[in-house]
C-alpha cells in the first residue's frame, strides 16, 4: 500500500507544467488534489516515473464571472464550491452537488479539474457539469483551446488530453432564474461513487429541457433536447408527463442492456425530475 518510487516536481506556472509534461511523455502524470490519483498510486495501479504536482500553480486557483457563465480554475476544490468561495453558476446549484462529493476531508483537497480529468463515469462533476453543458479549457504545447465537456470525455477514465496537455479551466453557463435543476445520485453508502446519476435542467418558461443519465460505465448519456421524455413539450406540468419508457429506450440504445440497471437509472432520473419540479430548495444539500 505504499506507492512505487517516483519523482515529483511542483511547477509554479502553467507553461512550466506543460513543458514538463511534453518533455516527459508517457511516464509523467499530472496530480492536482490527488484524491483519486493518490489511491491509484498507493495501490500501485499507477506507477508513473514522474508526478507533476500542479497544486502550486496560483493561476489555476481562480474563478471569474462572465456575463453568461462562470469560469472555474482547474484547482478550485469541491469545498471551495460548497462553501461559496467561488460564484455559483446557479442559485445554490453547484454548491449542492459539491457538498455531496465524497467526504469533507476529501473535498478540501479534491479539485474540479482533477475530477474531470480522472473521468470516472460515476463522478459528480463529470455528470453535473455535463448536464449543465460545461466546456473545458486545455493548455498544451501548441496553445490553448476550448472543448465541450462531452467531447472531452471520450470514455470511462479516458479524456481528450494529448501529451503535454493540461486542463486549466471549466466554463459553466449560468442557469437562468426561470430554470430549475434536479440532481440525484444513488449510492449505497454516503460518499462512495454513485451507482446511478440522474439530472434535469429544465426551463418551463423557455420550454427547454436537458436530461442526463450517468454512471453507466461510460460517459454520461446526455439528452440535449429532452422534450421527448415529457410528451414532446415542456410546460409547467412537465413532471407529470415524465415518460419512463422513453428514458429506458434511450438507455438501451446507449448500451445499458441490463433491465435492472435501466430500471435504477430511470428511477433516479424520475427523482431528479421531481426535484426539478419543486422539491428542490437551497437547503437540499446532500451531505454535511
Amino acid at each position: 500500500m505504499k506507492p512505487a518510487p517516483f519523482d515529483l516536481v511542483r511547477p509554479r506556472e502553467i507553461a512550466a507544467a506543460v513543458a514538463l509534461l511534453a518533455a516527459a511523455g508517457d511516464g509523467a502524470k499530472v496530480m492536482a488534489g490527488g484524491q483519486s490519483f493518490g489511491p491509484m498510486l498507493n495501490l500501485r495501479l499507477a506507477t508513473p516515473s514522474l508526478v507533476v504536482d500542479i497544486s502550486g500553480i496560483a493561476a489555476l486557483k481562480t474563478a471569474r464571472e462572465e456575463p453568461d457563465a462562470v469560469v472555474y480554475g482547474a484547482l478550485v476544490t469541491h469545498a471551495d464550491v460548497e462553501d461559496g468561495r467561488v460564484p455559483d453558476a446557479g442559485a445554490h446549484l453547484l454548491k449542492r452537488v459539491a457538498s455531496g462529493i465524497a467526504y469533507r476531508a476529501v473535498r478540501n483537497r479534491g479539485t474540479m479539474g482533477g475530477s474531470l480529468c480522472h473521468a470516472d463515469p460515476a463522478a459528480d462533476w463529470v455528470n453535473a457539469l455535463s448536464a449543465l453543458g460545461a466546456q473545458v479549457e486545455i493548455a498544451g504545447p501548441s496553445g490553448r483551446r476550448w472543448l465541450a465537456l462531452q467531447e472531452f470525455l471520450t470514455g470511462a477514465l479516458s479524456v481528450a488530453l494529448g501529451e503535454g496537455d493540461l486542463l486549466v479551466a471549466v466554463r459553466v453557463p449560468k442557469v437562468p432564474a426561470s430554470a430549475r435543476f434536479g440532481y440525484v445520485k444513488h449510492c449505497r453508502k454516503v460518499g462512495e461513487f454513485a451507482h446511478a446519476v440522474g439530472a434535469l435542467l429544465v426551463d418551463p418558461a423557455a420550454g427547454t429541457a436537458r436530461a442526463l443519465m450517468g454512471a453507466i460505465d461510460a460517459p454520461p448519456l446526455v439528452l440535449a433536447d429532452a422534450r421527448d421524455l415529457f410528451g414532446g413539450r415542456i410546460d409547467a406540468d412537465f413532471a407529470a408527463r415524465f415518460d419512463a419508457a422513453a428514458a429506458a429506450a434511450a438507455l438501451h440504445e446507449a448500451g445499458v442492456i441490463d433491465p435492472v440497471d435501466r430500471h435504477v437509472h430511470v428511477e433516479v432520473l424520475r427523482r431528479a425530475v421531481r426535484q426539478a419540479d419543486g422539491l428542490f430548495s437551497p437547503d437540499t444539500r446532500s451531505a454535511a
Binding site: 511547477p11 497544486s55 468561495r85
Partner: peptide
C-alpha cells in the same frame, strides 16, 4: 482557493 496545504510551486 485551491487544495488545502498546497503552497506555490517552485520556478
Amino acid at each position: 482557493l485551491g487544495p488545502v496545504g498546497a503552497r506555490a510551486g517552485a520556478g
